[in-house]
Design a protein around this nucleic acid. Structure first.
Lengths: 195, 195
DNA sequence: CTCTAATTTCAGGAATTACTGTAATTGCCG
DNA sequence: CGGCAATTACAGTAATTCCTGAAATTAGAG
């Protein structure tokens, strides 16, 4: 339903903001939080809460809660503006930095808790065969997540330029490994791993 | 609130199932869908809807809807069982395959729509300077997503063993590039790219 | 310290999403 | 074709999440 939404926004900006609002629910944030983020992302200068109220026609307190949530995700930063007592907010300029933040926060919320539960459950003694099977499945899942997070820990420190290079290389990396697969041991800091 | 939940499940399985239920909301699925998936994941044999009703104490129709949703995600597959008219369901055995499916489906739901909206908005003529700035931001976002999806398209075809190797290599790949960064052009199928 | 602008908290109501039981449908078997 | 088991659609209700306006709090300026 294309419910009427009075926004004081240029058409391009408005379409962008509305899209982020709609996607919000799929991304685990709500509509207004999505809209606030989108607005800040495309804004050429930091905005204060009242600017956002005006642009998106939300209540003042809703904007306050939305900004708080976005700050909790480190996706929005307070930025002081000279000669204005009101807080202003921006999104970081570098989109690759934004990606890193997003990855970090989603990992923290969406995978770390599961990893720790899995570790705990794998410590318990199985009561019967069903349990034993269940634990073997949990072990597989645990192994996969560990592998992914180890890789992520390795990758996340890369500065943007490097990361782009690595992405551009993509799957072609494995071509190397065919020819010369001892390289896997090349720059290893720590000693042997289980697998 | 640790609301009373009568599940007919071994303690280990129950803890796992409850955890998936709680995480469900963070993952964009609801509690019961999370629980159903968890149960199938650790079950040594395919289960039918009634088994799930029994194990999790949900209504029959709720289970039906949950299974439908999980099938929509390709995370759960119907599996016919001899001499039983009822449909039975499993999760795929290979966790790496599950990861691939998950990535595929999340991309389809969470990034593709945004990519296409961005493309569309970038075609439009800006009405003023604000629009021009907004478009430059959208172009940055678009570039990032394109880069990621290109990489993903490259990676997703790898069979599990290769993928594991690539993950294990991690950031060390870039060490190579320092020494010999012409390799970037090695196996390129298509001609030059913008960046 | 007081006054005022800015922000946040919070309780209640609105909107959305999830769940249930019943009724309808499907499809297999004789 | 019935007849029966299994599944699904759906409407009503329960639960959750979201949003608002009013009241409380915070913080700077004078």
């Amino acid at each position: 339903m294309p419910e009427y939404v009075p926004m004081n926004l240029a058409p391009l900006a408005q379409q962008f903001v509305l899209h982020f609002g709609e996607m919000g629910s799929r991304w685990g944030i709500n509509r207004t939080v999505g809209q606030i983020y989108a607005l800040l992302f495309i804004s050429p200068r930091p905005l204060c809460a009242d600017d956002i109220v005006e642009a998106l026609d939300l209540s003042r307190s809703n904007v306050s809660m939305g900004l708080r949530e976005l700050q909790g995700w480190n996706l929005v930063l307070p930025r002081h503006i000279a000669d204005d007592r009101r807080d202003h907010f921006t999104t970081p300029a570098d989109v690759w930095q934004i990606l890193r933040t997003l990855a970090e926060e989603r990992k923290k919320r969406e995978v770390d808790p599961t990893l720790s539960v899995l570790r705990e459950l794998l410590m318990q003694k199985p009561g019967n065969d069903e349990d034993r099977f269940a634990q073997s499945r949990m072990a597989e899942m645990h192994g996969l997540i560990e592998q992914l997070t180890t890789w992520y820990d390795d990758i996340r420190k890369l500065e943007s330029e490097r990361l782009v290079t690595l992405l551009a290389l993509g799957a072609r990396v494995t071509k190397f490994l065919d020819i010369k697969d001892k390289v896997v041991t090349l720059g290893r800091g720590r000693s042997g791993r289980k697998t």
